[in-house]
């Protein structure tokens, strides 16, 4: 892989030479080779440098700044000079009913999105696969992929307009049924259905791509022999397609569970209001309000650290499980 020799191999054979010489010579040799390597290959390091500097400056430096989660942060003293307070902020958080509510809401909203949102792209992919009319299929795919490319603000704008009490289409329609208008976005019980529903509307189509790709990879001879045996399309879907894409389904499910702490908080910030905090406020929106709006940087950073650590453990667990699953079930 590299041009550098394993330098320790040579010195091990040396018979009781003076200690200084034994280490000195390979050291110098190694340095010479290193210098040689850089002289020859400096260009790839020049290419690498901007990216590494960027990562250090914008992603790793904030990790160093995370220490304020354990400090009484003062803007005037700065991150390093502020005094340590240990676990105080975490104790405050776990005695704070708003934070506990945010943790609960994060888990509930994630779980509900998973339960209601996860199966939809699978159904869509299976159904797209059964459509034989190429133009119809392509047109429908083009349309259902589109919302993925629309910004969160526009999604929020559409939701707010559509659910508005006087002007919105939703109230117009329930008005036809003789139901009084409801101001949906101020009702805590309506927040989660609206949030999860708009998530499905935006992402289900695009997420079906990965399952369609899995279906495209199924060995066609399986279908051919099933046709010979007189299987119906319905039977082929259940007996061939679904079992064949099961590994993909399981891996995607594990990845989703690993991302449990990731709730689309940008949409929540745009849709929630104090009246719906009780069902809508998640960890990231809590951090946003406490930190960026109220200036309690240390407390909010502690909440962020808690979130990041839990997310890290979940993602790592999910990764290792999915690796094991893909090894056993694919091969």
């Amino acid at each position: 892989m590299t041009d550098l020799p394993a330098s320790s191999a040579g010195s091990a054979t040396g018979v009781s030479e003076p200690a200084t010489r034994a280490t000195e010579k390979p050291m110098r040799e190694r340095l010479v080779r290193l210098a040689d390597h850089f002289k020859r290959e400096w260009q790839i390091y020049v290419m690498l440098a901007p990216m590494i500097i960027w990562f250090l400056l914008f992603l790793y430096k904030p990790m160093y700044g995370l220490q304020i989660a354990f400090k009484d942060y003062s803007i005037f003293r700065g991150i390093v000079e502020s005094p340590w307070v240990g676990w105080e902020h975490f104790e405050t958080l776990f005695n704070n009913s708003q934070f506990l509510r945010a943790v609960k809401n994060t888990v509930i909203i994630s779980a509900l999105s998973l339960i209601f949102g996860f199966p939809v792209p699978i159904f869509l992919a299976l159904m797209f696969n059964e459509i034989l009319h190429a133009l119809y299929r392509r047109t429908c795919q083009t349309i259902v992929y589109l919302p993925h490319f629309i910004s969160t603000v526009i999604i929020a704008g559409i939701v707010i307009t559509a659910f508005s009490p006087s002007a919105g289409i939703v109230n117009t329609i329930i008005g036809w049924l003789g139901i009084e208008p409801v101001y949906f976005l101020t009702k805590p019980e309506w927040f989660r259905p609206i949030f999860i529903g708009s998530g499905i509307w935006q992402e289900a189509g695009f997420s079906s791509i990965i399952f369609l790709a899995a279906i495209a990879g199924v060995n066609p001879s399986l279908y051919e022999s099933a046709v010979v045996d007189g299987a119906s399309r319905w039977q082929m879907m259940w007996k061939i397609t679904i079992p064949s894409i099961m590994p993909t389904i399981i891996i995607m499910l594990i990845i989703r569970i690993g991302n449990l702490m990731e709730v689309g908080f940008e949409l929540i910030i745009l849709l929630y209001q104090p009246a719906t905090y009780q069902t809508a406020d998640v960890i990231n929106t809590f951090i946003y309000r406490q930190g960026l709006q109220s200036g309690q940087y240390d407390l909010a950073a502690a909440a962020g650290l808690f979130n990041a650590v839990v997310a890290f453990v979940l993602v790592m667990t999910a990764n290792s499980i999915s690796k094991r699953v893909s090894r056993t079930s694919l091969w």
Binding site: L59, P62, M63, G65, N284, A301, A308
Partner: peptide, 26 residues
């Protein structure tokens, strides 16, 4: 031939799994 290739790759990939969060970034 990149020296420390595994290290640099890990350094990039690690940021997918762990990030400092909103406040330290800001």
């Amino acid at each position: 031939q990149l020296l420390g290739r595994r290290f640099w790759n890990l350094m990039v990939a690690f940021t997918m799994w762990f990030h400092a969060g909103m406040i330290p970034f800001w």
